[in-house]
Amino acid sequence: MGKGKIAAQCSHAAVGAFEKAQKKDPESLKIWQSTGQAKIALKTDSLEEIKQINDNAKKLGLITSMIRDAGRTQIAANSITVLGVGPAPKDIIDKVTGHLKLL
């Protein structure tokens, strides 16, 4: 994916996670909003790793937002492109993403 496409996909994940947090965990969302709304872009080596992170995050009760592309530009339709995790305390998110490198 090009830089603009990555940015758009990450934005979709952030919005999706925000919407889920409004319903599932509004208290954590309020804390996140009042403490700077941290967002970090990380990279994985494979689709399988994205799926494993998603599974691990869900086991810890974290909100996730898995994004599938519509296929209108650079990516095949229905391809998983990005996974949003959180909002949640950094120490909990690090349990599932702490091994990843910055994008």
Rank of each mutant, 00 (worst) to 15 (best):
A14K: 11
T73C: 11
Q22F: 07
I67V: 13
A17I: 04
I50M: 04
L62F: 02
K5V: 08
L29M: 10
L29R: 07
K5W: 07
P26N: 09
N56S: 10
R68T: 06
E49L: 01
A21D: 08
Q22C: 10
Q22E: 13
K30R: 13
E49C: 02
A77T: 15
A13E: 03
A57K: 03
G16V: 08
E48I: 03
L42R: 09
Q9I: 07
G4L: 05
Q74K: 11
I80V: 14
T35Y: 10
K20E: 08
A38Y: 14
N78V: 04
C10I: 11
H12S: 02
I31L: 10
E19K: 15
I53D: 00
R68P: 07
A57E: 08
E49N: 03
D55L: 11
W32A: 04
L29H: 04
N78M: 01
S11P: 05
A7F: 06
L47D: 07
S65E: 06
Q22L: 10
I67W: 08
Q52D: 13
D55Q: 15
L60Q: 03
I53N: 07
K3L: 08
A7I: 12
M66V: 07
G16I: 07
Q74E: 15
S65N: 11
I53Q: 08
I75S: 11
A8I: 14
T81K: 05
A14Q: 14
G16F: 05
I63E: 00
T81V: 06
A13F: 03
E27R: 14
A70N: 15
I40W: 09
R68M: 06
